[in-house]
Design a binder for these strands. Structure first.
Lengths: 184, 184, 184, 184
DNA sequence: GATGAATGAGCTTTCATTCAT
DNA sequence: CATGAATGAAAGCTCATTCAT
């Protein structure tokens, strides 16, 4: 259906996506498309060729991020083992939260519904997250009465940016982790 | 310093503030001032007389909210008793989160720094919140290694809107409360 | 026709007129009426009671100035003698030019036509200026082929503000005076 | 540094500049940008692409005028000869003064400082004017104790618009020319 | 009479989107 | 295909003027 892009077109698309992520993350979604285009070294028209509206660009950025995050989660499951993977993943997320200002905006602030515009991506992410959760519950490191929806919510919660300095972030995360741990 | 407003002016100011809160909460901060003015039944100039910039209006709304929330917290301390006041307050906050979209935006998304523009209000709120926390710790219902900054962060976290349906919200809150509870 | 104002009303009118002159002279005609009112210590409504439009205020200021200038000219004729009065008057005008930014605006920039809105004042001024000119021509200090219109024009010219530093102003004035002097 | 504009862009830019000059000259600087755009047959955004603020447009117009005036002066020096070029130039300026309402506004009324925002242009103009002056002084038609600053001031002075009818303008100019002439 | 709050048209400026080059 | 100029619909904000207090 979608024919493979010409090499230069693919390069442009990737470049715009990367610049858009960096820019939205650092400065929020209000940055004009013209500015994204300028930083990517292309014309505004080129951005619109790949992403027909600004919202489409934002969604594409979010999709791309979620995909990478899921990948990271899969890696952790293999490397860290079932009992710790979820917790390490959690701390990973929190640590990168500071630069993901724009992603959080994209996920919640502006009324964007990722599930509606890119259902496959969301589902795939939840499936991977579910794997981490099951593994942890199997290993006895996470209580059994939470499900994947709760864990996802707690994740989003931990990405709320710039409200906490790192000291506080650390302790907030610990409280949430304790809440996740089975009764001791 | 600032003389009392004329009766009609005070009425208008209050009306604008209320309409602005409802509108920002429901539709976010991007709603034009003209629309706020229209809904409040005044001219745009009147809004600008009371709040010289849009940011000033947003800040005033946030201030007003924080003040009311602090008031509510004080009431709860008296009514619910030291052991439960903080938890009831927590659930209160969460329940109203759905309509506070705009308040959350104001507090964090747009780079507004309430502490910078209205230091007294923030401090007063933290002081009240500290009272609830101390009471709970005194009653043994909250662990002693959290401080007011952590509790405030968890509060903000619970107000992140529209990400959870109410089912999930309920369970997220429970996890956080468990995390706050002393080791069982 | 116009009944005498109550004492306080007259005081307010005079105060507004003075503040308006100072302000327009210093900052130009774009200063808002509200600001004039504030500086005069009255409400905006009071300004509008005395001067029904902003233009009316500007005209009143200009009238008032022209009247004072004519007065000054008459005094000089008596004090300085026929041969020198016009020249001294000239230098007087130039010296005060720096603060008369707004008066010049009023006279020419904004398409205001003082002659149309206040014919008597203009005529009275020209009559006095004519007296100075005749005196000088009688004394042989000014050439006979210039008339009052030319002298008035040269006066306005010399009030063009802020274009010259004082050094230059001095020399410009000398050139113009030499041009007025009969062939030597 | 700035790459050459595309053909259509250059056409639009020139058109806006010309319309802006005509309009400001005829009606003053208060004409809205939207009106300039309408008369130039372009959208308001196009004006802002070429001139990022209204002030930038005004400055560009003034620059353009000063440049043309300097060009005219150079031509006259070649055509009219050293003794008369300055005087012809003077009368040229005065004759066009009636339509340069806006230029004069731009140069002095609104506190715009051409020297500050476009130093090269001002300097180039003064240099050319100095050439005319030197030529005239060399030919003995202008007194030696005036310098270029005085002549520029007299020029500005002669451009003060609409204060004189043409009859008076003629005679004012003669007085100033006589003032410039060496003692007879 | 004086006050200053309210009005609302109008201004400058921005930016998502389209389209000629 | 890429470009970036053009568009034009808002947006935030100002201020001359009116009118309830």
């Amino acid at each position: 259906m979608t024919r493979p892009l010409r090499a230069d077109a693919a390069r442009n698309r990737a470049r715009v996506l990367e610049v858009a992520y960096d820019t939205f993350a650092a400065e929020g979604l209000t940055v004009p498309i013209d500015e994204i285009a300028r930083r990517a070294g292309v014309g505004a028209g080129t951005v619109y060729r790949h992403f027909p509206t600004k919202e489409a660009l934002v969604v594409a950025v979010a999709e791309d991020r979620v995909r990478r995050i899921a990948e990271r989660a899969r890696t952790l499951l293999a490397v860290e083992g079932p009992g710790q993977a979820l917790f390490v993943f959690f701390r990973d997320m929190v640590r990168s939260a500071a630069v993901d200002h724009g992603l959080v905006d994209a996920l919640m602030s502006q009324g964007l519904d990722l599930e509606a515009v890119a259902p496959g991506v969301e589902a795939a992410f939840l499936s991977t997250l579910g794997d981490l959760l099951s593994a942890a519950q199997g290993a006895g490191t996470v209580r059994r009465d939470v499900d994947v929806a709760v864990v996802k919510a707690l994740l989003v919660v931990c990405k709320v940016p710039q409200v906490f300095d790192s000291q506080v972030t650390e302790r907030v995360t610990r409280v949430i982790e304790d809440g996740l741990t089975p009764v001791r």
